[in-house]
Design a protein around this nucleic acid. Structure first.
Lengths: 186, 186
DNA sequence: CCGGTTTAGGAACGATCGTTCTTGACTGAT
DNA sequence: ATCAGTCAAGAACGATCGTTCCTAAACCGG
């Protein structure tokens, strides 16, 4: 019973994640959210409790439905270059890693819940690179370095703005880490 | 003539840079600044014009006086592992790259002035890695990837919080990029 | 058709933001 | 001693922030 809601909760969470990934958390106001998400303030607070509640929901949804598939795809890549390419190119002009990037830099140092989510994602990425493409990336330290490199490449791509993007750099890195695996695709 | 100021302008800019590097731009309020910098609101606006003016001054000062020496030190490193180590360990618990990191992620996409500063720094880092340590890192794409990796390693270090830091990962990356240069130091 | 329930619409709240203003204290030169 | 000029101290401004409240509209089972 009750009036039917004029919005789709999942769609709201997805759009919120997109907004938080594009601008920063503080760069998105409640007015922005209610204007772009098609949800009313009342419902927003009813469902998510607070702005931070919506943010956490968006972060968790995005990790579960966007980043996890990406990590699976990385684990199934044929070689390291393809894995890197998959990590850096999302649908549209952004990568699935962008929201994680923002969370890691802005909130993780001061918010343990966000930090837990971020470290879980990054650890999963490490693991995907371990059991993944070329069969084995030998040391944990090197896997961690490669995950960090993916973040850095995506970070730099955000400021470069020109499309001369990170794929070439990522491919170069992959090629140099494993030159014994010739990859004519890039 | 006039009353002598009770603060050192350079010290104000340095402290502001430290604050902006630790918390985000939006995470530092004017009240925070006047409370921690020992400068009065009036003088702040007299000298820097606005919060953004102070931020730009802090960013430029930090680039000139903290990042540039770091880049020189990187260019003079003996091998890549040492260069990476120098890049990732600043005085105290933070790296000189942190403010650049924040600027790149938060402001560069929407602020051309910040973007120019950031790309200049990153390009200089690329160049330092080119003419630097091991004599030559072959392709520009790989140099860009390595610079991005430094950013990513530092980014991840901020959320890890435990001291198991990025030096090991950076060393592993350096060792794998140039295994022909044995480096017993790490 | 009616009471109960949930949402939409939008005004309104206190708090905080960046910024400006007013007043008085201190200084060097006349 | 006086005046002009700079800074300190802090109140105050309008705007915007996240959040709450109130009322009307839309659906449900009786």
């Amino acid at each position: 019973m009750g009036r039917p809601r004029g919005f789709d909760e999942t769609e709201v969470v997805r759009a919120a994640a997109a907004l938080f990934a594009h601008r920063a958390y503080d760069g998105v106001s409640i007015d922005d959210l209610v204007a772009h998400l098609g949800i009313h303030r009342n419902s927003l607070y009813k469902i998510f409790g607070s702005k931070r509640g919506l943010y956490m929901a968006a972060l968790r949804w995005h990790v579960e439905n966007q980043v996890r598939p990406l990590i699976l795809a990385i684990g199934e890549a044929n070689d390291l270059a393809e894995a890197v390419r998959r990590a850096l190119t999302g649908q549209g002009d952004s990568s699935a890693l962008d929201l994680v990037l923002m969370a890691a830099l802005e909130h993780a140092p001061a918010d343990p819940e966000v930090a837990a989510e971020v470290t879980a994602v990054l650890d999963a990425l490490d693991e995907a690179l371990a059991i993944g493409p070329t069969g084995a990336i030998p040391t944990p330290a090197l896997r961690g370095a490669l995950t960090s490199s993916l973040l850095g490449l995506r970070l730099r791509a955000r400021t470069a703005s020109s499309g001369a993007g990170p794929e070439q750099a990522g491919a170069a890195l992959a090629r140099h880490l494993f030159p014994h695996n010739p990859d004519p695709s890039l």
